Simulated scan of single mutants.
Amino acid sequence: MKYLFLQYPKCSTCQKAKKWLDENDVAYDDRHIVEQNPSAAELKLWLDRSGLPLKRFFNTSGLLYKSMELKDKLPAMSEQEQLALLATNGMLVKRPLVVGENFVLAGFKPAEWEKLK
């Protein structure tokens, strides 16, 4: 099984995640989350597949998230509006993401990633 690994190469957490994937011989296609930002349709599919709340797909610790004051704005936005916003800039999206056929992992938690092996 080959997974889709979305990451930002300068992100230290993404670097750790990529190292973990390589050390554990997990096959993946690497995608730069800013150069190839996920579309709203991809994000909707991944949201449904993940079972996570939409807020988990936002990079809440990112500078762009904070400068746009999204903490205050997101509650008033519809799911469709939030997905469209996420699709505008990869820096808004939580990373790394691992996309499998029937699951999506957001962020790097080695214990959760064990199921990739």
Rank of each mutant, 00 (worst) to 15 (best):
E79Y: 10
L54G: 03
L97S: 04
P110C: 03
N37Q: 14
K55W: 15
K109S: 02
K2P: 05
N37K: 05
A41H: 10
E101L: 06
S39L: 07
L70V: 07
A41T: 10
T88I: 04
L47R: 06
W113D: 07
L116Q: 00
V104M: 06
F57I: 00
N59F: 03
V99G: 04
L54M: 02
Q82H: 06
K55D: 14
T13P: 04
E69K: 14
N59W: 03
M1C: 09
N37P: 13
P9F: 07
M68H: 10
E42K: 06
W46T: 08
L64R: 13
K44E: 11
A40M: 02
P110W: 13
E79P: 08
R95Q: 01
F57Q: 00
Q82M: 14
D29C: 07
E79N: 11
D48P: 06
P110T: 01
K115F: 12
L45K: 06
G107H: 12
S78H: 08
S78M: 11
L105V: 04
E101K: 11
N102G: 09
T13M: 08
L116V: 02
A106F: 06
L92W: 03
S78D: 03
D72S: 10
P110V: 07
L54S: 00
V34T: 10
W20V: 05
N102F: 11
A111K: 14
A76L: 14
E101I: 02
T60D: 04
K71G: 15
L64H: 08
L116N: 03
K44V: 05
L52A: 08
S67Q: 15
